[in-house]
């Protein structure tokens, strides 16, 4: 690894930090500067002018926006996420267990879908133009083209209504056996897996096809290499970087999917928490959830970029 590569990686990380700053500013603006007086909303029926003025002062709402932004940012950085408007609990306490639940869901989905998606994507690239490839291409386009809730409702119709294998919409909180656990996670995981696998298969296939079309793969063929050898020794090692990049990028689609899936299956994760917070306009909670989502997303795309840099063989050694 040389210093040039590290400077590229360092540059990418700096960009990520800058991005996070812009993102937090945007989130703050959208939730705290635009119309709708929070104090009035909070007080509801009891919103006498004096009470509103008092609460505004107590919440520092009269300070300039920039000052509030800096204060909020400093709070975030030190782990103080503020208090929920709705029930006056610490946001951090509310989020903690929910975040864990969401990470569990995402983790299981990843474990489940990455190997399958990679295998299918690589196979489709190798068998380009075959019936298998075309069917898979159509299927992935179809899954990408439909909303996540349609994948979810179709899964419910299929597995719960017609086959009656799994419970429909209710989320059983008490998992007493492994079998229960499986039943609880099955539906959300199947839905999410479909959504991210479709992306991953397409990107993997594209990355693989790009390397299969290079002159050095043609050269390997002209050296008499077998198809297996061509794929394993020449195409895959060079496609690995782009493929890992594709995996990281596809995982970022988990975020969009998780918002819908947690809502539809009533899963107690952070996305469900946030959607509920939006309907009660619980701004501190929304801000914190939004920042966590953006952080994860940014982390994934930064990791994807860094992998792309590190995997370029021309930059090695």
């Amino acid at each position: 690894m040389n210093s040039f590569v590290w400077s590229l990686v360092g540059g990418r990380v700096l960009v990520a930090v800058f991005t996070l700053l812009v993102v937090s500013f945007t989130v703050f603006c959208a939730t705290a500067i635009l119309p709708g007086d929070v104090a009035e909303v909070l007080l509801g029926q009891a919103a006498t002018p004096e009470a509103v003025a008092g609460l505004r002062a107590a919440m520092h709402l009269n300070d300039p926006a920039l000052l509030r932004f800096v204060r909020w940012l400093a709070g975030l950085a030190s782990g103080d996420l503020g208090k929920s408007y709705a029930n006056n609990m610490q946001v951090a306490q509310l989020i903690g267990p929910r975040l864990l639940n969401s990470l569990k869901l995402a983790g299981i989905t990843t474990l489940f879908s990455v190997p399958i998606a990679l295998a299918l994507g690589i196979a489709a690239a190798i068998l380009r133009g075959s019936v298998f490839d075309r069917a898979l291409t159509f299927l992935t386009i179809a899954v990408i083209s439909v909303p996540e809730f349609m994948v979810a409702t179709t899964a419910v119709l299929l597995f719960a209504v017609h086959l009656k294998w799994l419970p429909a919409l209710s989320f059983a909180r008490e998992a007493t056996s492994f079998w229960d656990l499986l039943r609880i996670y099955a539906m959300p995981v199947i839905t999410l897996a479909f959504v991210i696998s479709a992306q991953m298969i397409r990107m993997t296939r594209a990355a693989m096809i790009e390397t299969l079309d290079t002159p050095y793969v043609e050269m390997a063929r002209l050296k008499g290499a077998s198809p297996t050898r061509i794929v394993l020794r020449h195409a895959l090692p060079n496609a690995l970087g782009p493929i890992v990049n594709a995996v990281a990028l596809s995982l970022s689609y988990l975020l969009g999917g998780v918002i819908i899936v947690e809502t539809i299956f009533n899963y107690p994760g952070i996305a469900k928490l946030m959607v509920d917070a939006v309907s009660t306009r619980d701004l501190p909670l929304i801000q914190s959830c939004a920042m966590i989502f953006c952080l994860v997303y940014l982390l994934l795309i930064t990791v994807a970029d860094v992998i792309a840099i590190l995997s370029n063989p021309r930059l090695r050694r």
Partner: peptide, 13 residues
């Protein structure tokens, strides 16, 4: 076979 562009015909990895 000796290709036109050896630079492209060698596997970079």
């Amino acid at each position: 076979y000796v290709p036109q562009s050896a630079a492209a015909a060698f596997n970079p990895a």
